[in-house]
């Protein structure tokens, strides 16, 4: 059984391929721990309520709102943050398609798009919409993001 008391304790998180020791309260969300303990600020704090997707990270390759997970729940699981996706073609595509304005929602969209491309590269428009509705953007109007996501999926299927 995993136990964690009500005071702070040290646990290990597996982030972007590395193992890291962090000091946490049971009540600390994964979002807070990634940001404050590991300096991985790509996951943004924007609603802490699972409504906006700005804090999206991947756990076992699945997109998750890191504000809706406790850090203690996430030990022993591979976690990927935007910092772990260095110079991926998804990032290039978001730049090329003008899918970025203020940039605050961008890491969340890119990680969600990455997970979609990995698990369902042949996703229909309906599936793309179902996935991407988890992320809010207030600047772009979604058109450019939609183009970027579709381009990423196309590139993925062409490669397979």
């Amino acid at each position: 059984m995993i136990k964690n008391g009500s005071s702070k304790s040290v646990v290990k998180l597996h982030v972007n391929g590395d193992s890291h020791e962090v000091t946490i309260r049971s009540a600390d969300t994964l979002l807070l721990t990634l940001r404050e303990q590991l300096g991985l600020n790509g996951a943004k704090r924007a609603c802490e309520n699972g409504d906006c997707g700005a804090c999206t990270i991947l756990i076992n390759g699945e997109p998750m709102h890191s504000c809706l997970s406790l850090a203690i729940e996430s030990i022993n699981q591979p976690i990927t943050t935007i910092e772990g996706l260095k110079a991926s073609n998804i990032q290039e595509t978001f730049v090329e398609k003008w899918a970025i304005q203020c940039g605050y929602c961008t890491p969340g969209f890119i990680l969600n798009c990455h997970a979609l491309a990995e698990t369902e590269p042949n996703a229909t428009d309906e599936v793309i919409e179902e996935w991407m509705q988890s992320n809010l953007c207030r600047c772009t109007g979604y058109q450019e993001i939609k183009e970027a996501v579709k381009t990423v999926l196309q590139a993925k299927t062409n490669k397979i």
Binding site: M1, I2, G5, S26, A27, E73
Partner: peptide, 21 residues
Amino acid sequence: MIPFDFEYYKPDSITEAIQTF
């Protein structure tokens, strides 16, 4: 940010969960 502290248990079995409770 959750303002209060709590203990966290993740049991491996049903009996362990019931016992812990």
